[in-house]
Structures are given as structure tokens and as C-alpha cells.
Computed example of a mutant assay.
Amino acid sequence: MTGRASGIATFGAAAALLSQMIQLSPGFSAAPLTVAVADFDYFDTSGEVRDQRAEHRARMLRFTELLRESLSSQGDYHVQPLECTDPPCTPINMQPARFIDASRRSGARFVVYGGIHKMSTLVQWGDIQLLDLEADKVLFRQNVTFRGDTDEAYRRAAAFVSGSVRDALEKR
């Protein structure tokens, strides 16, 4: 082997070893993955007489904020909102193709999106999805249910969803 070929082989071996050390060593970590968390749709078919749209809008905003905060809290994910010209930034509001385009323009590798449906005065359910924008595939889809139409119920739902999304990202 020539001196140059030997040097290239040594460099290649060193790079491979360094790559393994970074992946295996707890003190080393790769750059955080970028995750966009879109706004969430909300549907109320409970038939309740009192107009609760303002309360629900505020709770959905807080739900999304809590999800973003929880995912970014440990520093292993760079979490950002999705930008669009006509909020809310959801597949239903924007149409799916425009939503995907906006997600890709954000620079995120993954996007979390979904919606919450209030079925009755006590029961709500949500459909949450995690899309890998690079691989063009849904990595995770989960239906969640929760009781109550209170700030606390939304806080608990956001914490549960955040944990589920984290698990899905770690398993990818």
C-alpha cells in the first residue's frame, strides 16, 4: 500500500471509530433533531349550549405550547413552530400538500400534528401523528382519549402525547 493509500485508510478507520464513540459515549451527542410541532385542529360536536370556542382555542394553544416545551426540555430535540401565512398551520386549514411544503420549508426533519375532538361534555379524543419528512413516511400515529374539558386535562394529555412522541423518535 502506498503512503497516501495507507493515510486514507487510517483516516477512514479513525473516522469510523470516532463515529462509533460519539454514538456510544454518553458524553457525546449528535446535533439535536429538529422537530416542527404544528398547530392542532379542534372539533367540538358535544352539542353543549354554552359557546366555549374562546376557551377551547386558548386550551389548544396551550396544549401545543406544552407539547413544544416538553419535547425541547431535555435538549435532545430542537423544537419549532410551523410557519404559515394563514394560521392555524394544520393539514385541514392549509390543505395537506401546502402543509407538507411548509413543514419542509421549516427545515425540520420531523413534524408532529393532529387534532382533538370533543365528543361529549366529558370525553375528548385526539389523533396525533409524527411524520418523517426526509423518509416521507408516518413514523407514529396514536389515538388518545382524555376526560374533562379543563386546563388540567389538556396539560395531562400534552404530557402523555409528548412522552409518546419522544418514544417514537427514539425508536426510529
Rank of each mutant, 00 (worst) to 15 (best):
T2S: 03
A102S: 11
A9N: 00
R4E: 02
H56D: 15
E55N: 15
E48A: 09
C89R: 12
H78W: 10
S106N: 12
F11H: 00
F99T: 07
A157K: 12
V49D: 07
E48C: 08
G163I: 00
K137L: 01
R156F: 09
I8T: 09
D149E: 12
V37F: 06
A58Q: 11
N93M: 13
P26Y: 07
T64P: 06
D132L: 05
R109G: 03
Y77L: 15
E48I: 12
R147A: 15
M60V: 15
A16C: 13
S29V: 04
D41W: 01
E134Q: 10
V123L: 14
F146L: 08
P96V: 10
A36L: 02
D44Q: 14
R59Y: 10
G7N: 00
P32Q: 13
V49T: 14
E55G: 14
V111N: 10
F99M: 08
M60N: 13
L18R: 00
A97R: 14
A58W: 05
R68K: 06
D101Q: 14
A158T: 07
L17E: 02
R98E: 02
R4T: 01
R104D: 03
A168V: 04
T45F: 07
I128N: 00
G12H: 04
R57P: 03
D76A: 11
S164G: 04
E152N: 07
S25A: 09
R156I: 03
Q23W: 05
F11V: 00
A159V: 05
E170Q: 09
E55Q: 15
M1N: 08
M94K: 10
F140H: 10
L130K: 04
R147I: 06
I92H: 04
V35E: 09
F11Q: 04
A14C: 05
A9Q: 12
A102E: 09
D127Y: 00
P88Y: 12
S19V: 09
M21F: 11
P81Y: 10
A9F: 06
T145N: 12
L66D: 07
Y113W: 05
T150N: 09
K137N: 12
A135R: 13
A36T: 06
C89S: 03
E134G: 09
R53H: 15
G75S: 13
R98W: 01
E48R: 08
G47E: 11
S120A: 11
V161L: 00
L67P: 12
G114K: 07
V144S: 05
F110W: 13
T145E: 08
L131D: 02
R147F: 06
A14G: 03
L66G: 06
L130P: 02
L133I: 10
R166W: 12
Y77G: 05
S103D: 13
D101A: 11
L82C: 13
L61R: 00
P87V: 11
S120G: 14
